[in-house]
Amino acid sequence: MEKYNVGYWNEMDSKEEFPQEFFKEFVGSGFGSILIPKEFGGAGLGTKEASLILREINRLGGNSYFVHGQYYNLALLNKCASQELKERIFPEMVRDNLLVLSLALTEPEAGSESTRITTFAEERGDRYVINGRKVFISRVDRTDFLVLVARTKPYNEERKTEGISMFLVDMRQLKGQVEMRRIRTMSNTDAYELYINNLEVTRKDLLGKENDGFKCLLRCLNAERIMIAAEMVGNTEYFLERAVDYSRERRVFGRPIGQNQGVQFPLAQAYMELMTSSTTLKQALDLYETSSDERSIGTFANIAKFKATEAAWYAGNVAMDVYGGLGYARDLGIERKVRETRLFLVAPISKNLILADIAHNVLKLPRSF
């Protein structure tokens, strides 16, 4: 990260480019395969170590958005890929630094109601033929493998999660079955809309069981939310460290601006938010690595993601205030990090859905939907 400093990430953002140089060195150094078990040549580490890496990238001014898909998708593969599939892809992933960066779940009409997806995998012998449309699928132009969520049974109002299946798609073998359209966004997200036309996969490409893939999907989404919480803790640390240093150095009316309570109090509150979100993140990570209760893991993953994102958003705006007009300048990096943080107030799960989840499933209040 000393080599890939704030100036590098600002340039990638300005040009809306994938950080290829950083990514090549990151993966080439072995960071891409840390979650792959040792028996296949990986480091055999866990979600906690992956989260620490993502947190540190963001704390030092980078944007771990470009690499986090590799980690939460590998967490999914460790849990739900068959032994045969692991033996087929894991050694190759380690040897050739292959990537599984993208999860294709979201659809234009379904949005946050994931069980309403309409992308359909029709069974034909030992194969499935998949047709559908996905939106806001990140890094799909850079990945070797795509985790694709589709229905293998039509939607049933009484059994909403039944009929969802997950597949691992080898993107290197495609010839026009997946069309991509770039979506320009507020920050540099490398996001795409996908049109899936008669894509063929085999039964061996299934992740988990046919029609019962929602359990595996939860495992992936919980890992994703926890890792994003770690990234947002990193962003909070970045904003706070920069703002505190500046408030000590910047002098107005003959004294440091950090001597003023109008500056001190927001920074102190940002620090308390950091401590709260860090503690919640640790609880979520501990539960993820020791429990098989996806319901409880999901609750803590949601809380960690909610609190960490709120903390980062607050700290980012405090930093903008502390820096004044300078914070608005692109070269500093503060405004870029604020834009990058804003995404996670609504994705991959919105604040209101997290609040509804706590109300319905923890407090046992009547369902609002």
Rank of each mutant, 00 (worst) to 15 (best):
P19S: 05
N156V: 03
K364D: 08
K24I: 08
G176H: 08
E249R: 15
E11N: 04
S112I: 06
K48R: 13
E237S: 12
F18P: 03
E237I: 13
E193F: 02
F31D: 11
N222T: 12
D286I: 07
A110Q: 11
L326D: 10
D13E: 15
A270T: 12
I226Q: 00
K153P: 02
L267W: 00
V362W: 04
F300C: 02
V67Q: 10
L35N: 04
F40T: 00
L281M: 06
T299R: 05
K38H: 04
E294Q: 10
D126A: 06
Y195D: 07
L285S: 04
A150I: 00
F26A: 05
L174K: 01
G234T: 10
L353W: 06
V178N: 05
R342N: 10
L103E: 14
M180G: 06
L76V: 07
T280C: 00
N260L: 15
D190L: 02
F265K: 15
T143R: 01
E49A: 12
L45C: 01
R139H: 11
Y8N: 07
T118Y: 09
V338K: 03
R95S: 09
L146W: 09
R127K: 13
V338N: 04
T143K: 02
G125N: 08
K209C: 01
K305G: 05
R184V: 07
A319E: 03
